[in-house]
Design a protein around this nucleic acid. Structure first.
Lengths: 340, 340
DNA sequence: CTGAAAGCGCTAACAT
DNA sequence: ATGTTAGCGCTTTCAG
């Protein structure tokens, strides 16, 4: 195979012009201090002069380390989760920025079949993985077989002793409940994803019910829907069919936003007729009117912590489980005391 | 360097168990029909049986082709453009899905310094590039020096004979103006990014003014701001300081959303007191209340076309410039006839 | 139709 | 402190 002549210089080229061996160049590149200051300096200079740039493929082949991490999004109901819920892109932006400090590039992927996943993981020689959502045992088997460090987000399976970045969802739910109760609400609904598959939402509901119980109030009415705008939009109708509740807590902002939207179309005004609180603290919370009161899970921090944890894991540092991120209530304008 | 024993099989391993040479295996992998059906079949079978997965680093090193494309976002004012404007993530989602059909993985990056950019481009051996925003001539020099195919989005420099994916921005502006004029508005404002750097917004304004001129109406009042929620939010105050205009056309939905938000806080109701139309057709258009009337640029299509064009370019197919995407008006609830 | 072997750029023993 | 050399896994002439 012939490549275009005179492309980029290799370590041999620079070694040759400096008058040393390729190994010497490799040493200075890798910071092994096996080279005298003098030659090191000369090497560095010629590298700059000749515009040397290391070839990652070669490094990868030689070291078995790609400096690539994969981030894998669930492929929910064949829609692009990415544009479904801004949560993902906000997370990605912050994760990427942090992991790049460690010299890693991020490659994105969607979860297709296990065999596609394996091909993706192996052929690229991914050094680490970030996984969103739920994955089958088969997937984990693959990951374990290749000993790839990974971090899970919002994962709750205690059987799996894995790094998991999450917020204290139950506390978040509790906070939301507490806030609504203090405002004087007695009947509260919860709108979230299918509890069977969304552990996160289960926890959030749990927290809400704990607050309710503490105040001797009845447990929340539960409405399950899909975790996106449309889900919230649809749930609004079900919620408003009976007007027993004066407040609703949604498992995600995007659901809350959809719900508010539909409620307004149906003529119920927020927060006068209905208080709503969300969870996540997306940017979009301030896009809507009234601005959405929510439980912040500090997405930027989450992205950053995930990166830090993964970096740690890839450097061999086992254990190092990060404590859950503490959620907090962000007061905006979608909640108020009930009218009557 | 010793790697953990018995890791993944190489073509040698599979060649050995089949009883042929490594070359034969390589041939079948690459679909060169230089191998008899019989052996080909046996090779395929053992590959499956042994769980063979090709190593991209090796391929990349050998062929000088990484099967990786980079997508580069501007790093505006040190903020994460990604969470600033959902446009980017919606584009990315669709681009990624399409390009992956061609066997490419997408690696994301932000534009840092030219030398960082070069390091990124070269060290990963990127096969193609998608560029958002404005780049210095220096950057293009680098790209050209390495002969990397690329596609630009929303780029208007005719001097640069490059693949560029864009919508007909002027037509979009015209459509927006026409709509507002037909509604009976006589004084219209335009809120967009700095025209000096945003060619896109210049074109959109141009189109608006063309419609205005056609109707013998005065040109639009121009308010420049930053292209994000905060920008629109701030612009609202300036716009509403004088109440001469009854309608406003914003260069991007995200700006329109910020503007609407602030306007509502200031007590002006939309569309009764002020009509607003955006540009992009983000999902978020329906999150807000009233839902935003906008000029759709069909983001999914844009992402898809960008991928197709890049695929084409990477396969040597030069030229192939795609026609601009045709924008269309999406009627929602943020526009109405002026009151008086 | 099949195999041997050189080479892609870099790393890491193992000398010297 | 520096050089030699054998891979890493795959592709691709060039010979059979």
């Amino acid at each position: 195979m012939k490549k275009a002549k005179r492309n980029k210089p290799s370590i041999y080229d620079i070694a040759q012009t400096v008058g040393v061996s390729a190994a010497a160049v490799s040493y200075v590149i890798n910071g092994k201090d096996k080279v005298s200051e003098k030659t090191k300096k000369k090497i560095l200079e010629t590298m700059a002069a000749m515009g040397y740039v290391i070839d990652q493929s070669a490094v990868s082949l030689s070291k078995g380390k790609s400096s690539l991490v994969g981030i894998c999004f669930p492929l929910e109901s064949s829609s692009l989760v990415f544009s479904d819920n801004p949560f993902y892109s906000e997370f990605l932006a912050n994760f990427e920025r942090e992991i790049s400090k460690g010299g890693y590039d991020t490659i994105i992927g969607y979860l297709k079949s296990p065999s596609d996943f394996e091909r993706w993981l192996i052929s690229r020689g991914l050094d680490g993985l970030v996984l969103f959502g739920l994955y089958s045992p088969e997937i984990f088997k693959i990951i374990h077989a290749h000993k790839t460090p990974y971090v899970l987000t919002d994962f709750y399976d205690p059987a799996l002793n894995a790094l998991s970045i999450r917020v204290d969802d139950a506390l978040g739910g509790y906070l939301a409940g507490k806030h609504l109760i203090e405002l004087g609400h007695k009947r509260i609904a919860f709108v979230g994803g299918e509890l069977a598959t969304s552990k996160v939402d289960s926890k959030r509901l749990e927290g809400l019910n704990a607050a309710l119980a503490e105040a001797m109030l009845p447990a929340a009415r539960l409405i399950e829907t899909s975790t996106n705008f449309e889900g919230g939009y649809l749930a609004a109708e079900e919620l408003l069919a009976s007007r027993d509740e004066t407040a609703v807590f949604c498992g995600s902002d995007i659901v809350a936003i959809g719900l508010m939207r539909r409620a307004q179309e149906l003529g119920v005004s927020i927060p006068e007729d209905l208080s709503v609180v969300g969870f996540d603290d997306l940017k979009a919370c301030t896009y809507v009117y009234p601005a959405l009161t929510t439980i912040a899970q500090n997405i930027p921090l989450k992205g950053q912590v995930a990166a830090t944890a993964l970096l740690e894991a890839m450097n061999g540092g086992e254990g190092m489980n990060f404590p859950p991120i503490e959620p907090r209530l962000i007061l905006r304008n979608s909640t108020a005391s009930p009218k009557k």
